[in-house]
């Protein structure tokens, strides 16, 4: 595996000419972009632009109609089980198990990912800390608010120390404090050597968080680059303006 990782060099996600059709609907049309090691890559676009479909394909949940998607050199279709060991995925509407306590859930997930008792304990400890739920971590998750459920899911996604975390709208539905907390966690994941790809509607959030991003609209990548680069390219003061400018052109 190490060899494959070295082969992939810094380019950890490679998407080439990705097409996804649901019957007559083309959700993704010749999508291509790369994600490099240590990056926070943002996939930005309005509703039904194709963000979630792209992330689901990366997470091995959906199959591409055509095109190639590789993570650390592994094909997401042919080598899906190897890809799953390297990633963690947070769905936009990820649910929780009503009758499990937050702590139990984290501990079960840790036991799926790690073998040694020490690794498991460390992962759970880290997750409990980053969830910021305090004593409520021992309560059943059916008693959690929407924000608490999201925080436990973010903690779950990051505790496994994934090579790349795939987060679909990680701050969706969170208030300003909790959204900031999640953004801090994302930054810490990168400083610990991880990489991350996320989707968002919130362009201002992405502007401050992502190292590189791509605008996606109607299943097509319409521009890609660093936030500053894109703003300069379209003479915009922020990403929202840049996005609207791209659409006009």
């Amino acid at each position: 595996m190490a060899e494959r990782i070295r082969m992939a060099n810094d380019r950890i996600v490679e998407i080439n000419s990705l097409v996804k059709r649901f019957g007559e609907l083309t959700a993704l049309d010749e999508v291509s972009f790369n994600v490099n090691k240590g990056e926070i890559f943002g996939l930005i676009g309005p509703n039904a632009a194709g963000k979630t479909t792209t992330l689901r394909i990366l997470a091995t949940l959906l199959l591409p109609t055509s095109g190639r998607v590789r993570i650390f050199g592994y094909d997401v279709v042919e080598e899906a089980s190897k890809v799953r060991r390297l990633i963690s995925y947070l769905a936009e509407d990820a649910g929780t198990y009503r009758n499990l306590a937050g702590y139990e859930y984290l501990s079960i997930v840790a036991r799926i990912y790690f073998r040694s008792k020490r690794d498991i304990e460390e992962a759970v400890e880290e997750a409990v800390r980053i969830s910021g739920l305090g004593d409520r971590i021992m309560d059943k998750m059916k008693t959690y608010s929407k924000g608490m459920k999201r925080r436990i899911q973010v903690a779950r996604a990051l505790m496994t120390r994934p090579k790349i975390a795939i987060l679909d709208e990680p701050t969706a539905g969170l208030d300003v404090f909790h959204a900031q907390h999640v953004r801090d966690l994302i930054k810490r994941h990168i400083s610990n050597g991880g990489s991350l790809i996320l989707s968002s509607h919130n362009m201002l959030e992405v502007e401050h968080l992502c190292t590189r991003l791509a605008f996606i609209h109607k299943g097509r990548i319409i521009t890609e680059g660093e936030p500053e680069e894109i703003k300069v390219m379209y003479g915009a003061s922020n990403l929202e303006e840049a996005f609207l400018e791209v659409l006009k052109r």
Partner: peptide, 14 residues
């Protein structure tokens, strides 16, 4: 129904 299957299917288990 409760949207937990999607997460479960991305875990490294068959």
């Amino acid at each position: 129904e409760e949207k937990t299957l999607e997460t479960l299917l991305t875990f490294p288990v068959s």
